[in-house]
Nucleic acid binder design. Sequence first.
DNA 1: AAGGTCATTTGATAGTACTATTCCGCCGTG
DNA 2: CACGGCGGAATAGTACTATCAAATGACCTT
Lengths: 239, 239
Amino acid sequence: MGLQGLHGQVVDGIGCSLAGGEIRAGEVLRLEDVQERYGVSRTVAREAVRVLESKRMVTSRPRVGVTVRPESAWNLYDPQVIRWRLASPRREAQLRELAELRAAVEPAAAALAAGHAGPGERQELIAQARALIGAARARDSEAFVTADAAFHRVLLGASGNGMFAQLAEVTEELLVGRRDLLLLPERLDNPAVRRHLDVAEAIAAGRGAEAAQAVGSIVAAARNEVERILDGTACPLPT
Amino acid sequence: MGLQGLHGQVVDGIGCSLAGGEIRAGEVLRLEDVQERYGVSRTVAREAVRVLESKRMVTSRPRVGVTVRPESAWNLYDPQVIRWRLASPRREAQLRELAELRAAVEPAAAALAAGHAGPGERQELIAQARALIGAARARDSEAFVTADAAFHRVLLGASGNGMFAQLAEVTEELLVGRRDLLLLPERLDNPAVRRHLDVAEAIAAGRGAEAAQAVGSIVAAARNEVERILDGTACPLPT
DNA sequence: AAGGTCATTTGATAGTACTATTCCGCCGTG
DNA sequence: CACGGCGGAATAGTACTATCAAATGACCTT
């Protein structure tokens, strides 16, 4: 995973502590503290700090030490940061943010995909949509998440926008996060599932607006689901 | 900016070369090459590699060296990466992606802001909208961009979603990028400008859907503008 | 073709010298 | 007496070098 090498472990350890709120913004760590806390050499400690600095989680200044920056400054799109936040007590807030982000982006990605997708991608979308429906019918939660993730990955990739495509990884974490929250095999077969095929067909036909609308209903439902589970305050779906 | 310390300069140099396509995916750099290319010690070279690794632009493996990863793997939301890509020959593609991202996110942010914004934020939005209109009337390109950036920063921040808020920085780069592309003082006073006040008032009144729609028209126009300038292929605005 | 050996390159540590910044005391001035 | 600027000293990061360990790809042997 992200912990290649000694420094990676240190980064992961500190990153976790930061995301978990164990170390709060404004607090300062000395390089020496990091060394003995993790039992590593100065070099490794510095590399770890450099990486965290690159993620904008800390700043390093002479005579002061390593200062923790406020969460709002962090690179919140860094996959590692997302994972830390998902593993933190504030997991719910992160899930909600991801759901909102996804709800905003995927419709736009679908609209673009209708214009940019290649023949293979259009076919792949339909194939994954059918696999999704099949998995839902079979109450196969495993295959369901796999097909769901694959579908949205292809969709985002077909948008031709690299930044959208990169959200596929995030989306997958969201999907498994949702699955973990409520593993309801009986809930698998809902209207949103069949909507996936509508999306695939709309994109295959190049009908961007239609695809966007269909995706919009899917992600809005997903977001609503997350919201409902998290804090009970579900927003009504726009008809 | 991001070049604090020696290693920062090396990171910036390599990052630039990578984004500029001077070093392509799959190519390998040896740590020793980095050392003599930038005249730095092994320690600094390693720190630079660690940072680039954190940005997912390279991987470092023993016996092989530092391998450049394909652009699709990079942390495209890292502000530094965005800046490198904006400074590269492929600047246009990056601008387009940013415009598309913004078009997708800001309406959603506006809808959320209608629910989450505090009293101060609602007032601030109206104030910035008025400042924007004033700057447009006065043909003051400088004040225009400032107010525009401030408006969207407050808007994104008021969404209550940290990931949305973080796009403010990106949006500002997009705004100045657009300004640089076409500094047209006479174009300042267009319908989209007055829409900002509609947005502010809708959010102030808590009418999320209305705010989202108004923002949608603004960002769609902006995106269309960018597209038109970049490659002449403008998409028709959805009525 | 399969397997082992070796060279190469990164990974990690220790030690050292440098540098920047902050803190604090000193002095002068108002 | 209080306030403010000035400068030294302590402190913590910055950077370099040297050295050993570990991993792995390539080559050679069988």
